[in-house]
Design a protein around this nucleic acid. Sequence first.
DNA 1: TTAGATTAGTTGTTTAACTAACTATATGCC
DNA 2: GGCATATAGTTAGTTAAACAACTAATCTAA
Lengths: 146, 146
Amino acid sequence: MPNNQFKKGELYSFITGKASTAIARNLQKRFNAAGLKITIEQWSVLYHLWKEDGKSQQELCSATFRDKPSITRLVDNLEKQQLVKRVPSESDRRINLIYVTRQAQKLQEETMALAEALLNEALEGVPPDRIDICKEVLQIVYDNLR
Amino acid sequence: MPNNQFKKGELYSFITGKASTAIARNLQKRFNAAGLKITIEQWSVLYHLWKEDGKSQQELCSATFRDKPSITRLVDNLEKQQLVKRVPSESDRRINLIYVTRQAQKLQEETMALAEALLNEALEGVPPDRIDICKEVLQIVYDNLR
DNA sequence: TTAGATTAGTTGTTTAACTAACTATATGCC
DNA sequence: GGCATATAGTTAGTTAAACAACTAATCTAA
């Protein structure tokens, strides 16, 4: 028997990701309000480079769940803004290793603080155990569709 | 005391909507595979018109959580494909009322079946009460950010 | 050693999102 | 009635996503 939990109206918002769209849009507004000239998509790339840079574009694809052309263009734009630098790998010249610049490092603390503050507000009034369940369900959804 | 539930890696995927992106991408692939020439974004507009058409573009904005230019262009493209028709309102000539065509009606049953099947697969193995909690949390997130 | 397959990244095209600036119609107030 | 304001929708410009087709470098196996 199918696990059909979705009334029509809910189906729509689950598929279109109403909540995550609202989060991303809100975070973008906070960046703009703080005078940070960076898009959410660019931030999502820097996010992984801040953890450890010198990653290849291919590694950034997996980390951000984007395809290769998307990463090429995001890195293009980040490079234009002098936030990252492409460095051809010594050992395999097909590969570009991506490094963050000083200017990008400066962005880290401020943007991460804004992101954490946003999530705390978004989840205000939600008990921790329910947040955990939500995270688990979303992870299963993701895994089921791989 | 802040409700800071997010370890760094999870923060990213919550903000970028990994699960909903996967769902939308997967549904688009099913549409393509079935030979249905329609994008997810177009589908999300038709979805609301199938429930009741003759809605204004402004009403479609609220229903789909998009801004006005986005709806203008989605309706442009839907009209090009002869899936909807703009009809100027008699009572207020600023308003376009949007009606679905016969061809769009034909799409309804097939696309809705694909969407429901997808969600059933995505949520396979998740107990109903956990799905409910997940939906509730996402709704609260959305409401908190309005 | 070299021909074929694989991998990393780029380019072109279409669709879409967001912002800002715009036109046209309607409303409200004096 | 007429002017300010609000509302519905469009247009322009930038950024981004998905897909297909491409180049260049590397690997593999005969």
